[in-house]
């Protein structure tokens, strides 16, 4: 038996909306520690890792580890039916190939029950080591989204360079070139407005912009984004979900032929 209650159905809806273009099917692994999902996009260039800790839920019960394979577009269709301030309860047991989403209005006057068919998904589960990165940049998530979208109109790839003074994003295309330089900014009223650059050694890597633009669909989930880079390693783009977990996106760098 699995049962979990979230104060805001809208949170899960937003999470699924932010990843469902990248991955259409995925398996949620449920255990006493929470709900986890790890999946690669169909071209195996990027990977999404979602972690929702059990202590971030209002109620969380998982008698034993349990896998729930879901089509994320179908899940999104159901989550869209939740009211803005509805609570969400998820229920599933191993006897049925279904997960139930219960949406309850704040005054308890409306209770909607949606049952989603579960599916068997065969996927590779990858071990992601907790690596030390050469550079870690935290910046407002809206700023990162603007940068990748702006550069996406110029070129297909972005070259990210981190030095101790700044982080540069550069793109080139048929119409010309663009460089956006962000300096460290610590003296802000709100901590989420900061741009923080931690550099062990300078890095310079190139990534496909369309994936980064896709990752930035998660912008509404967190005011700040953390970008972790090491030479010849996948970049990590992390959105922390306050009090419950994170969504991390991994993207392999472009390698020169």
């Amino acid at each position: 038996m699995f049962e979990a209650q979230m104060a805001q159905a809208a949170l899960l809806k937003q999470i699924i909306e932010s990843i469902r273009e990248l991955i259409t099917e995925a398996t949620f692994e449920v255990s006493g520690t929470g709900m986890m999902l790890q999946a690669m996009d169909s071209s195996h260039v990027s990977l999404v890792a979602l972690n929702l800790r059990s202590d971030g839920f209002q109620l969380f019960r998982a008698d034993r580890p349990f896998s729930m394979g879901m089509n994320l577009n179908h899940m999104a269709k159901m989550l869209k039916c939740a009211g803005k301030d509805d609570t969400l309860t998820m229920r599933a047991d191993e006897a049925n190939d279904l997960v139930t989403f219960l949406f309850e209005s704040p005054g308890n006057e409306r209770l909607a029950e949606f049952e989603l068919k579960l599916m068997d998904i065969t996927s590779e589960n990858l071990g992601i080591p907790d690596a030390e990165y050469s550079a870690t940049v935290s910046m407002p998530s809206a700023e990162f989204q603007r940068i990748v979208k702006d550069l996406g109109s110029i070129g297909d790839t972005v070259e990210i360079t981190v030095t101790k003074d700044d982080v540069r994003f550069a793109a080139s295309g048929d119409i010309g070139n663009a460089t956006i330089k962000c300096r460290q900014l610590l003296d802000t009223e709100k901590p989420e407005d900061r741009t923080l650059i931690e550099m062990v050694e300078p890095v310079n890597l190139t990534f496909a912009l369309r994936y980064l633009i896709n990752f930035s669909k998660a912008t509404s989930l967190a005011p700040s984004v953390t970008i972790k880079l090491s030479t010849e390693m996948p970049v990590v783009v992390e959105y922390k979900l306050s009090d419950i977990g994170y969504v991390r996106f991994y993207l392999a760098p472009k390698i020169e032929d």
């Binding site: 690669m40 071209s43 195996h44 260039v45 990027s46 990977l47 590779e124 589960n125 990858l126 071990g127 992601i128 080591p129 496909a208 390693m233 996948p234 991994y250 993207l251 392999a252 760098p253 472009k254 390698i255 020169e256 032929d257």
Partner: peptide, 14 residues
């Protein structure tokens, strides 16, 4: 895609 390695090649299989 050309010049674009498989993400799985960076991680260990479980």
């Amino acid at each position: 895609p050309a010049g674009q390695p498989n993400i799985a090649s960076f991680f260990t299989k479980r």
